[in-house]
Design a protein around this nucleic acid. Structure first.
Lengths: 214, 214
DNA sequence: TAGATTGTTAATCGATTAACAATC
DNA sequence: TAGATTGTTAATCGATTAACAATC
């Protein structure tokens, strides 16, 4: 397996999104030039990125939108179903549970967990809420591979440990803190501050009239 | 103004987070080596990154944690107060409003907006909810600079236009779609799929025992 | 066929890492 | 002083962009 560059990996979902839109509008064929233009990228870069997915284009014609979408989905392994637990049924957890488009990317939320007694036994968007201490046994039983962490920072490590105990393969961490885990457990820290830093930086740059590429 | 590399900008909030933790634990001085170790980075890279903030270290001693924190906050312009509107008072919007740590980064939510009649006039975590059509006038009046978009994809462009009409400087877009805006308006698209792609990629890599650096 | 677009190699650019003198 | 760490220059690495032959 060839390692895919991180930047390529981050661009692929953007191509996917654009291509889905195009397909909705009845577009059947598309060239790297058009894609590049739409996403403000270089067309060579688009071709290089798409090459990783193994898809083949035709000179003069370009690529078939449908083929491209399937190739990207396949390459991202988003055609594989992954069952997930959402831990923390607060606002952010509810938002995750409510956004059912994650299924389009293979991610299925099968249960949620919270420490709040009053929430246990209820459902959020059809997903049942259980007590935190049920995590290890249920994760094992249900062969859960992904844990989505939407708990406050101070609870994150404790909950992560329960997920790991349950044999989880990856943790998508939305808590604003870092988590310790054995190296075979994938941790993806989703930090809002990273994005905020990018935002404020751009604001300052615009103020200085240094409007670069973006 | 020297342009800060994007990767540096993304790492700065991570340094900040780590340093705050260190300060809480009473650590007063720290070296680039220690920081690098904690975040799995190269110490030269840490020094280069910190150099952008203008902070100075002392050979043998390292940096003062407090000085470093202030330098990063200042550099990210997070010491400047920015008033913001949250548009979309659903789960994600409520999560944003409830996470009051954004104030630590200068971001103050002064009002929220929703199209749901039943929410208008109520408050979420002390922030009052208004009708969407109040956006342009209120934004102008209150000198709002940032709009946080937590609406469904199909409403995003419409709402963005209202914010722009109100003279907003930047939009932090959490809707899973792209937004058209004049080039002087900063758009930061916060796409969850980008992060999910990184997660699934790492999962596949671990399965192939290609555990790289991370 | 002529022209547009792919796939790929080569050149450039920028970021990371290594090396090391200066310094506390 | 000896040793650790900074600040900075140079070397390396990897990603982006340019160039262009192949091809439909």
């Amino acid at each position: 397996m060839r390692i895919t560059p991180e930047p390529t990996m981050r661009r692929l979902p953007h191509y996917l999104h654009f291509l889905k839109r195009q397909m909705e509008n009845g577009v059947e064929k598309i060239s790297s030039t058009i894609i590049a233009q739409a996403l403000s990228l270089d067309s060579t870069q688009v071709r290089k990125d798409l090459e990783y997915t193994g898809v083949k284009g035709k000179p003069k014609t370009g690529f078939f939108v449908k083929e491209l979408i399937n190739a990207i989905l396949e390459f991202l392994t988003w055609t594989t179903r992954r069952d997930a637990f959402v831990v923390g049924a607060g606002n952010l957890g509810s938002a995750m549970l409510g956004y059912n488009r994650f299924r389009d990317y293979g991610l299925h939320f099968v249960a949620a967990f919270d420490s709040d007694e009053s929430k246990i036994g209820t459902k959020i968007y059809d997903t049942p809420i259980f007590s935190i201490d049920k995590i290890p046994s249920m994760a094992q039983q249900m062969q859960i591979t992904v844990g989505v962490l939407t708990v406050p920072a101070q609870a994150a490590q404790e909950v992560a440990d329960l997920l790991i105990k349950g044999g989880i393969k990856a943790i998508w961490n939305f808590a604003p803190t870092y988590i310790k885990a054995p190296k075979e457990v994938v941790i993806e820290n989703h930090q809002f501050t990273e994005s905020l830093a990018a935002l404020t930086r751009k604001m300052v740059e615009v103020d200085f009239h240094l409007l670069k590429k973006e």
